[in-house]
């Protein structure tokens, strides 16, 4: 099994104030896969992503990146986080930095890259998400879609092996959603390994290699988009998909 999976998640449990948010989640991710997590809100999908890069510490369970355990690794977690990018619902761009500075700061501060080199790399990544023209604008001067594209570039500049997308389009208007989804589609096609929490069924259908339906802190059903969307086995999945299609 070594080398087959880039990311392995084993039996993750998490409680907040006696509320069980995650009740034993396990799955494996192959290199280059795009896994889309769907399910009702409050079902622990975002917490699961945060448990993967240890922004939230799981109560139980293990996470392996390339067969190295990253749960309970103490201060070495910063090193693993460099290899696991994350994109947030609210972008979380650094408000005091321009777009290009947002992208180059982690390479400079964390990877100790030379400033010119980091700048060139940052411009390249901004170009990739179509934001090169906005390099010198501050976050407050960008639309939500633009800000999210910059935050994807910020992530890419660290050359991550996996990117976690935590509802990347939930805070965006429909038109702005499209430009972000386009960038994500390109990324998926280029072979990036992606874990996406999203309600965008169109995106899931066309891009996902696997869809995982979660409810109540458990995985209810998982499979290819075709299986899940066209022929869901579990009644809960059917009900959820029915509701989603009608809204």
């Amino acid at each position: 099994m070594t080398g087959e999976y880039i990311l392995r998640v084993e039996d993750i449990h998490k409680k907040f104030n006696d509320r069980e948010i995650l009740r034993g989640i396990s799955f494996n991710v192959k290199k280059g896969a795009t896994i889309v997590f769907i399910g009702p809100s409050g079902t622990g999908k975002s917490t699961l992503l945060r448990c993967i890069n240890q922004l939230t510490e799981p109560d139980r369970g293990k996470v392996f990146l390339d067969d190295e355990e990253i749960t309970g690794c103490g201060s070495r977690i910063s090193g693993y986080r460099q290899r696991i990018g994350m994109v947030f619902q609210n972008f979380n761009l650094f408000d005091h930095l321009t777009a290009v500075e947002n992208v180059e700061i982690a390479p400079i501060k964390v990877r100790k890259m030379k400033k010119e080199e980091a700048h060139a790399k940052a411009m390249e990544e901004l170009h990739r998400v179509g934001m090169a023209d906005w390099a010198h604008h501050y976050p407050a001067e960008l639309s939500g879609g633009q800000a999210q594209r910059v935050s994807i570039a910020r992530c890419l500049a660290m050359d991550p092996e996996v990117i976690l997308f935590d509802e990347p389009t939930s805070a965006l208007d429909p038109e702005l959603t499209r430009e972000v989804l386009e960038v994500m589609k390109d990324l998926a096609r280029s072979g990036m390994t992606m874990l996406v929490v999203s309600h965008e069924m169109g995106f899931a259908r066309s891009v996902a290699t696997e869809i995982i339906f979660m409810e109540g802190g458990r995985i209810v059903e998982q499979g290819s988009p075709l299986e899940i969307m066209n022929n869901p086995k579990h009644p809960r999945t059917r009900e959820f998909l029915g509701r989603i299609e009608h809204t």
Partner: peptide, 21 residues
């Protein structure tokens, strides 16, 4: 809070995040 979270997600330590962000 998101500023600290994002900084840590990029691999910064707490001290680095406080200083640079």
């Amino acid at each position: 809070d998101g500023q600290m979270t994002a900084a840590q997600a990029l691999g910064m330590t707490r001290a680095q995040a406080i200083k640079s962000i």
